[in-house]
């Protein structure tokens, strides 16, 4: 059926409006990072300017800790993503293939835990983490981020693995395959799309997360969002150029990652929506 005339006219207009609405802040951020500082918030606004790398030079010279924090962000993000994907793929497989009351109860418990506001858990955890001498380590952030994404990602992986016909596994069993071989040669390759989708959520969350990093890190494991928050909170005036340069640098890895995996995200989110 052909769309009506108003629909055909309105659709591209809406598309452009949404694209501008979503894309303009990013465009403004990146453009501003190449403007001379006095032109960034100039009035009237200056749309034409000679690009400069001064803000990036200032970022390197005045905020060297930002790049150390980026390294920390990368370690924590990759660590949390890998750990989450491994744990949730295995959990998703069990939830998909095994039926028991205990498992049903544990699935419910996971959902409940996900609903608890993080701040409720983090503050009482502070003295415990401190006592265990885990404060200001990457491992504490990796474990916390993983913990908060295990429930959601387990359900994503379960939905994905549900779509893999059991008959393939049964055929493998007849051919003599054990559990590990089934996982390695059947489940993992066929659920790779779901793993990528699941990893996207934890990757983005871990890269941008502030609260846990703020509470549990000091210097060694300090992540990039904490340094950016310091730039915003300057008591002697915000250096907008440096701030925009840092935000642009911080944006690049996540942008590249999301663009690379976006089609899997859609597939992951719609997994299980059609049966049969």
């Amino acid at each position: 059926m052909r769309d009506s005339l108003p629909t055909r006219i309105l659709r591209p207009i809406c598309f452009v409006l949404i694209a501008v609405w979503s894309g303009f802040p990013i465009f403004f951020l990146v453009m501003s990072s190449f403007k001379p500082p006095r032109d960034i918030l100039a009035f009237p606004p200056r749309f034409f300017f000679t690009p400069t790398l001064d803000n990036y030079t200032a970022l390197v010279t005045r905020w060297p800790e930002f790049f150390e924090a980026l390294q920390s962000s990368l370690i924590v993000t990759i660590g949390a993503t890998v750990l989450t994907v491994v744990a949730t793929t295995l959990a998703g497989y069990v939830y998909s293939r095994v039926r028991s009351r205990l498992l049903a109860a544990s699935a419910f418990l996971m959902i409940v835990i996900r609903m608890v506001p993080p701040i409720v858990i983090t503050l009482p955890l502070f003295p415990v983490i401190n006592y265990l001498r885990l404060s200001d380590t990457h491992i504490v952030l990796i474990v916390l981020y993983t913990t908060f994404f295990v429930s959601l990602n387990t359900w994503i992986m379960k939905a994905f693995i549900d779509q893999i016909p059991r008959e393939i596994e049964e055929a493998a069993v007849i051919d003599g395959a054990g559990l590990m071989q089934i996982l390695r040669y059947i489940i993992l390759p066929l659920s790779a799309q779901g793993m990528i989708a699941a990893s996207t959520f934890v990757f983005i969350f871990s890269w941008n997360e502030f609260l846990f990093a703020f509470i549990f890190t000091t210097t060694d494991a300090k992540t990039a969002p904490l340094v950016i928050s310091e730039m915003v909170g300057a008591v002697d005036g915000v250096e907008w150029g440096v701030l925009f340069a840092a935000a642009t640098v911080q944006l690049i890895p996540i942008l590249v990652f999301v663009i690379a995996v976006q089609k899997y995200v859609i597939a992951g989110l719609t997994a299980g929506s059609l049966k049969g």
Binding site: L123, F126, P127, N130, F214, I215, T218, T219, L226, S229, E230, V232, G233, V235
Partner: peptide
């Protein structure tokens, strides 16, 4: 001397937690 720097609100929040350990 090792400097640990935080934004104003974050600094006080962190300090008050550390004082109670």
């Amino acid at each position: 001397v090792e400097w640990v720097t935080l934004d104003t609100g974050a600094l006080h929040e962190r300090l008050f937690r550390e004082l109670q350990l």
